[in-house]
């Protein structure tokens, strides 16, 4: 398969994943409260923009034409404004919006775990499409991904334990401590 065709296929896959995770996080759609609707709108907008950026559209690249041949005093501001949508981190906005959507629903641990898997699948596919790399680059990260997936399932199991027993609390605290330690190791990159 040629390189453009493979890239198109990857982008199409990312678009499907985006649609799936937004739908999964939004369902069930209940009520007409303003905040969930706003978050859903943000998620949809961010989904479209992140896929558009991958497709290398003009909006994503910030390649806007000037308003005219002459450099008017407001032309730089206009250029900055029109280039802004291409500069925003739409993928991050999408991930956060999807998580907020999920958090707005009542607790449903196994539903959240599926969303987490969808979200990471999206992040990795987005990374591959963005860097034009093959799946081979994910090979060394596979053990970490499996370990992370295990931790996610562990956390969901802790949350799914009935009641607010000491076991669930301890598991949550352990997961939190592990995550914070990992953050401390990772952030000085």
């Amino acid at each position: 398969m040629s390189r453009p065709a493979a890239r198109t296929r990857t982008i199409a896959g990312v678009a499907l994943l985006v649609a799936a995770e937004v739908t999964w996080a939004a369902l069930p759609l209940g009520g007409s409260a303003a905040f969930p609707s706003l978050v859903l709108a943000c998620a949809v907008l961010a989904a479209m923009m992140s896929v558009a950026r991958l497709a290398d559209t003009a909006a994503a690249d910030g390649e806007q034409s000037r308003p005219g041949g002459y450099d008017w005093p407001w032309s730089s501001a206009w250029l900055w404004l029109t280039a802004l949508p291409g500069r925003l981190p739409w993928a991050e906005v999408l991930a956060v919006a999807v998580l907020v959507l999920e958090a707005l629903h009542p607790a449903r641990p196994w539903h959240t775990v599926v969303l987490i898997f969808l979200l990471f699948w999206f992040l990795l596919a987005y990374h591959l499409a963005e860097s034009d790399a093959g799946r081979v680059v994910l090979g060394p990260q596979l053990p970490l991904l499996l370990a992370g997936g295990g931790l996610a399932v562990l956390c969901a199991a802790a949350a799914a334990l009935p009641g607010t027993g000491a076991g669930a609390g301890w598991l949550a605290v352990l997961s939190g401590v592990a995550a914070v330690v990992a953050a401390g190791l990772a952030l000085p990159v």
Binding site: V113, C155, A158, G176, A182, L185, A186
Partner: peptide, 20 residues
């Protein structure tokens, strides 16, 4: 206060570990 969201942070931070 929902621990399942900590499970979201765990894989992300594990993936960040090697880049040091």
């Amino acid at each position: 206060r929902r621990p399942e969201f900590v499970g979201l942070a765990a894989p992300a931070l594990l993936l960040l570990l090697p880049g040091r």
